[in-house]
Nucleic acid binder design. Structure first.
Lengths: 216, 216
DNA sequence: CCCGAACCGTAACGTACGGTACGGTATAGC
DNA sequence: GCTATACCGTACCGTACGTTACGGTTCGGG
C-alpha cells in the first residue's frame, strides 16, 4: 500500500506506522521524541529511521506533514448560497477549527514547530502555518466571497474579513493551550463558541449592517 | 541598588545585568541560551549562576519574571468616563498589546515558555500567561465595567467581552509570529489595526447596539 | 539453492551541555 | 595587615542523545 501526499513523497504503510508512533511520542511530551524511543516503540532499527528520514529533523518534518495530510479536508464550493447555509458553513468551519486547535495532537505539533521556529533550523513553523492558518484561510475566503456575491456579506478585503473571523473564533484559546493552560473545551462549549463567533461575524459583516454614509 | 519584584525576590544590579544577558541570548535564538554562554557573555562564572539561580530552569524562570517586571504598567482607574476617553483607552490597550506581542523579546519568551509547557518541567508557561494574557485581562476588565456602568457598553460577562476584544485585536498575529512568519508590524500598521479592532468592538458591544428582545 | 536487499536489534562513538570543583583575585570588615 | 566572603575563569565529570556501524534474520528473484 502506498499513501501519497501532495509533496511528491510516497509513504509505505510501514513508514506511516512509524510516523504515527512519532506523533504519539510528540503528544506524550515534547522532548520525549528521541530517535531511540521512536525505534523502540515502532519496533524498527535506528538505521532504518536514518535511511528513511535522513536525520531527526527529517523525521520531525515528515511527521508534521503526515499529520497535515490526515486533517486536510475538501474545499467547499457551493452552487447556491443563502443566509442559512452560509451561516451553517461558517459555523462548521469554526467548530472544526476550534476542535483542531484544542486537540492534543495539534497542541503538541504547534509546540514543537514553535520551538524550531526559534532555532532557525528546518521549517516546521512554515509547514504548520501553511497547513493550519493559511490552509483554512484559502478554504474560507472563497466562501466569504461567495457570500458577498450573494449579497449576504459586505467587506472590502476577503483576507481582512477572514483574519477577523479567525480572531473571533480563536480568541485566546490557542495561546492559552500552547502555554499549558488547562482549558477544557467540550464539544458543547465548542458549538456554543462557534455559534457566538459567527453571530458576531454577521453583526460586523452582514450586508444590511454595512456602515452607511455617516452624513445625513 | 536593589530592584525588587513582586515575588519577594530582591535582585542586585549585577543580577539584573546577568538576566539581561540571558534575555538577549534568548532573543538571538531559542537554544543558544546555555549556562556557558550566559556566563561568558555576562563575564561571570558558572558557579555564580548556579549559586544565584539554582539551575538552568531557575535562571530561565528568573529571566521571564525579570522581563515581566519590566513591562508591567499601572492600572487604569478613571474617575469619569465618556465615549471618547473609553475609546482612547481601549485603543491604548490594543496598541500596547500589539506592540508587545510583536516585539522580538516577547516572541522569544513565548517560544521558550511554549516549549517548556510541553515538557512539563517548571512553569514558564504559567508565568507568561499570568503576566501576559491574564494580566491584561485584569487591567482591562475594570475599564470595560466602568464603560458599562457609564452606559456606554453592554455585555453580560466582562471576561467574555474581554476575550472577544482580545481576539479582535490579536487575530492571527501572535501564532504567526511564534511560528516564524515574517510579519512586519510598523507602528502605523499597529495604530490602524488597533483602531479597526476597537471600532469593531464598539459595533458589537456599544450599548445602543444591544440586541433588543426579538419578539414584538 | 544462493544472493542481495531490506530490515531488526544492539553496541559503540562523538559531542554538547548541565552541573561541580578548584585555584586565583579583589573587597569589606576588624 | 588578616581573614572571610564573593566572585571570576577554567578545567573537569557524567549523561543523554544524535549518529554510525555491524551482525543476524527474512524474503523475493534468478
Amino acid at each position: 500500500m502506498q499513501t501519497t501526499t501532495d509533496n511528491g513523497e510516497a509513504l509505505t504503510a510501514r513508514q506511516t506506522e512509524v510516523l504515527d508512533v512519532a506523533l504519539r511520542l510528540l503528544v506524550e511530551g515534547g522532548d520525549s521524541l528521541t530517535m531511540t524511543a521512536v525505534a523502540r516503540r515502532a519496533s524498527c532499527s535506528k538505521e532504518t529511521l536514518y535511511k528513511w528520514f535522513g536525520d531527526r529533523d527529517g523525521l520531525l518534518t515528515a511527521t508534521v506533514r503526515w499529520q497535515a495530510s490526515k486533517v486536510r479536508t475538501g474545499n467547499y464550493d457551493r452552487q447556491q448560497l443563502d443566509a442559512a447555509t452560509l451561516r451553517e458553513s461558517l459555523e462548521g468551519f469554526a467548530v472544526n477549527w476550534l476542535s483542531v486547535i484544542s486537540s492534543s495532537t495539534s497542541i503538541a505539533l504547534n509546540r514543537v514547530a514553535v520551538s524550531h521556529a526559534g532555532s532557525g533550523k528546518s521549517n516546521l513553523g512554515g509547514i504548520v502555518l501553511a497547513n493550519g492558518r493559511f490552509a483554512i484561510g484559502e478554504r474560507l475566503k472563497p466562501l466569504l466571497e461567495a457570500g458577498r456575491a450573494a449579497g449576504l456579506l459586505a467587506f472590502d478585503d476577503a483576507e481582512e474579513a477572514f483574519r477577523t473571523f479567525f480572531g473571533l473564533v480563536g480568541r485566546d484559546v490557542q495561546i492559552r493551550l500552547l502555554l499549558g493552560d488547562t482549558l477544557k473545551l467540550s464539544p458543547a462549549a465548542i458549538a456554543d463558541d462557534a455559534k457566538r463567533a459567527v453571530d458576531r461575524f454577521f453583526t460586523l459583516f452582514e450586508a444590511a449592517n454595512r456602515p452607511k454614509i455617516r452624513s445625513l
